[in-house]
Design a protein around this nucleic acid. Sequence first.
DNA 1: CAACCAATGTTGGTGCTGCCAACGTAACAT
DNA 2: ATGTTACGTTGGCAGCACCAACATTGGTTG
Lengths: 154, 154
Amino acid sequence: MPLSPHQFDRTPDRITNRPTWLISRAFARSSAILSAGFEQHGDGLRGYHYRLLAALEQWGPASQTDLGRTTGIDRSDVTAALTELEARHLIERRADPQNKRRNIVTITPGGISELAALDAVVNKAQDDLLAPLTQAQRHQLVELLTRILEPTDP
Amino acid sequence: MPLSPHQFDRTPDRITNRPTWLISRAFARSSAILSAGFEQHGDGLRGYHYRLLAALEQWGPASQTDLGRTTGIDRSDVTAALTELEARHLIERRADPQNKRRNIVTITPGGISELAALDAVVNKAQDDLLAPLTQAQRHQLVELLTRILEPTDP
DNA sequence: CAACCAATGTTGGTGCTGCCAACGTAACAT
DNA sequence: ATGTTACGTTGGCAGCACCAACATTGGTTG
């Protein structure tokens, strides 16, 4: 009885239990939740902008290359995202007197409050995503994912 | 001492310990590993093709809409990916006599052996990705991710 | 039966993310 | 002084996810 609907109520085993598949699905859900949140509170800002603002707020002024390194965003994408942030007066770029090829990027007070708003969005996304897990399980998940990511840093 | 290099040897806390961030990084790693593998054994096939072949091999012939439902791929993307698979004679499309708007998609013997090759790539990707984890931890991770994904199916 | 609505495949387009190549300028190394 | 590296910028590409519109076909309802 091919093509009957109840044949399709689960994903293929070959795929379902594979970490790479699960991670891609988790990422899809996570992205959907985040972008929905960004769209609501959206001044058109997205993940890249959030990462950059967070890095700036946490570490203070930095060059664009350093921002790229710490946020995992390519130099060229950093340039584009910063331009959009600058247009909204959320960051400032000024030339480094010590090194004329370098821009020193600073977060503005407006950027800090925007970051706070985005933080709320991102925090809520964590809860939405991890709703089915207990606190201990959430911690476990973070631990495991961290371990996966750690040894590749250098 | 702003802008000193050792200021940047870690990612911002605000981001680092957040599941959405970790998942996005894990996905990035996973994608990189997979696409590297696909490129080596690549006849230009990518994730979509693998998912579709796997679904067909596991469940037998199906309509495109059903394939989309089970693989989580949009109808329009299913169409495109199947066209590419068909050009390589890895699948066949034929009209459903019972329902003229429907295509019945079948995997060919060539498709099955291609799937086997891709399976090897995907299996290796699991090992590469989860290298830092013990078997128990891998199982734990799968369990946690599955739990996150489950309740949103309906 | 006729009129409407739902499903199906197709086309074409969008957005986000992650990359890479090339360029000019500036700093550094030898 | 020369060559090499770092930096920011521009422009492009690929993969994944998603959406809108359309013609065709099937089913449903008045």
